[in-house]
Amino acid sequence: MTKFRACIDIHNNLVKQIVGGTLSSASPSTLKTNHTSLHPPAHFSALYRDAQVTGSHVILLSPDSHPAATEALAAWPGGLQVGGGITADNALEWLDERGAEKVIVTSWLFPRGRVEVDRLEELVRRVGGRGRVVIDLSCRRVGGKWMVAMERWSRVTEVEVCKETLDMLSDYCSEFLIHAADVEGLCRGIDEELVERLGEWVTIPTTYAGGGKEFADLERVERLSGGKVDLTFGSALDLFGGSGVKFEDCVRWNRERS
C-alpha cells in the first residue's frame, strides 16, 4: 500500500523547498526557492515523529548544512534517513554518531558517470549491511528514457533507471528514493509514466518524489504503482507554504493503511 513519506530539505542550514532543476553550485544565481521556513529542522522532525511518518528523509542541499541536519536527526534518533554528500567514509558518522536510521547515497556512486560496484560493496561492508543503505536515483528524461542525474541534478550520467539497473542495485540497498528532477518543486503533477514503470520494476521499498501537487496524488501513485511506491510531497504541502496538500490528511492516509 502506498504511504506518504515526509522530507526535510536543508539549504544553507535552513529548511527550504527548491525547484530541483535550478540547484547548481556552478550557477547559484539561478536558484529558485519556493519556500524558506521560519521553523528549525527539529520542528519538522518532531512533527514526523509524533505522527509516526516513518521512512522520512533529511536531504542536505548544500555542504554547509551539517549542523541543521544533525539537529533534525537529534530530534528523532533512529527515525530519519539522511542524504546529501554521503560516502563510505562518513556514512557511519551519520548513522552511529548523528542518529540516522539509514544513509541515502547518490552522486558518490557515479564518479565517472556509471555505477561503481566496488564503492557499493565498500559502503555496505562499512555500515554493516544493505539494510542501512538507501540509493537515490535522481533522474531526468532523455528521449524516452530516464537517466540518473548527479551533482545536484545538473549532470546526466550513463545510468538508465530501468528494471535491469534496479535489480542490480537492489542487492546493495534496502530502499530506493527516486527524484524526478524535471518536475521537482514545480507542483505541476507527478511523472505518471515513471511511477507506473517503477511499480512494474521495483522489488524493494521505493519512494517517489517530484511534482506532487494535490492529495489525490497519493491515490494516483497507489493506483499507478499497484501500491508498491510511496510518495513524498514537498512544495505543495502546507508545512512548506503549499496549498494543495494538508499534512494532517497525509497522516490520516497513513493511519488508515496501517
Rank of each mutant, 00 (worst) to 15 (best):
residue 75 A to L: 12
residue 113 G to K: 07
residue 97 E to H: 07
residue 136 D to H: 05
residue 101 E to F: 00
residue 72 A to M: 13
residue 84 G to N: 05
residue 143 G to W: 11
residue 103 V to C: 00
residue 162 C to L: 07
residue 105 V to F: 06
residue 89 D to K: 12
residue 126 R to Q: 06
residue 104 I to Y: 08
residue 76 W to Y: 03
residue 93 E to Q: 13
residue 140 R to N: 07
residue 116 E to L: 14
residue 108 W to L: 03
residue 111 P to F: 14
residue 150 M to Y: 02
residue 113 G to Q: 10
residue 89 D to G: 06
residue 169 L to A: 01
residue 167 D to G: 12
residue 168 M to L: 15
residue 127 V to L: 09
residue 143 G to I: 13
residue 147 M to Y: 09
residue 77 P to A: 11
residue 146 W to A: 05
residue 76 W to N: 00
residue 90 N to W: 01
residue 143 G to M: 10
residue 137 L to R: 05
residue 86 I to S: 00
residue 112 R to F: 14
residue 167 D to H: 14
residue 74 A to G: 06
residue 91 A to W: 08
residue 133 V to E: 00
residue 115 V to K: 03
residue 132 R to G: 02
residue 85 G to P: 00
residue 117 V to G: 06
residue 111 P to T: 14
residue 130 R to P: 10
residue 75 A to D: 13
residue 74 A to V: 01
residue 152 R to S: 15
residue 106 T to H: 08
residue 156 V to M: 15
residue 136 D to T: 09
residue 165 T to K: 05
residue 132 R to V: 03
residue 123 L to R: 04
residue 92 L to K: 10
residue 127 V to I: 12
residue 93 E to G: 08
residue 100 A to S: 02
residue 103 V to A: 00
residue 146 W to L: 08
residue 154 S to N: 11
residue 166 L to V: 05
residue 165 T to N: 04
residue 133 V to H: 00
residue 109 L to G: 08
residue 163 K to N: 12
residue 115 V to D: 03
residue 109 L to P: 07
residue 112 R to K: 15
residue 82 V to H: 02
residue 158 E to I: 15
residue 108 W to H: 11
residue 104 I to A: 04
residue 151 E to Q: 15
residue 116 E to G: 10
residue 82 V to N: 02
residue 90 N to D: 05
residue 118 D to Y: 06
residue 152 R to G: 09
residue 133 V to M: 00
residue 114 R to V: 15
residue 144 G to D: 12
residue 104 I to W: 08
residue 142 V to Y: 08
residue 152 R to L: 14
residue 160 E to W: 04
residue 73 L to S: 01
residue 139 C to K: 06
residue 89 D to S: 14
residue 136 D to S: 15
residue 105 V to E: 08
residue 75 A to Y: 13
residue 127 V to N: 05
residue 78 G to Q: 03
residue 95 L to A: 10
residue 114 R to H: 14
residue 137 L to Q: 03
residue 129 G to E: 05
residue 72 A to R: 10
residue 115 V to A: 06
residue 125 R to W: 14
residue 149 A to S: 15
residue 123 L to W: 03
residue 104 I to P: 09
residue 148 V to I: 09
residue 126 R to L: 05
residue 159 V to E: 08
residue 137 L to I: 08
residue 131 G to A: 12
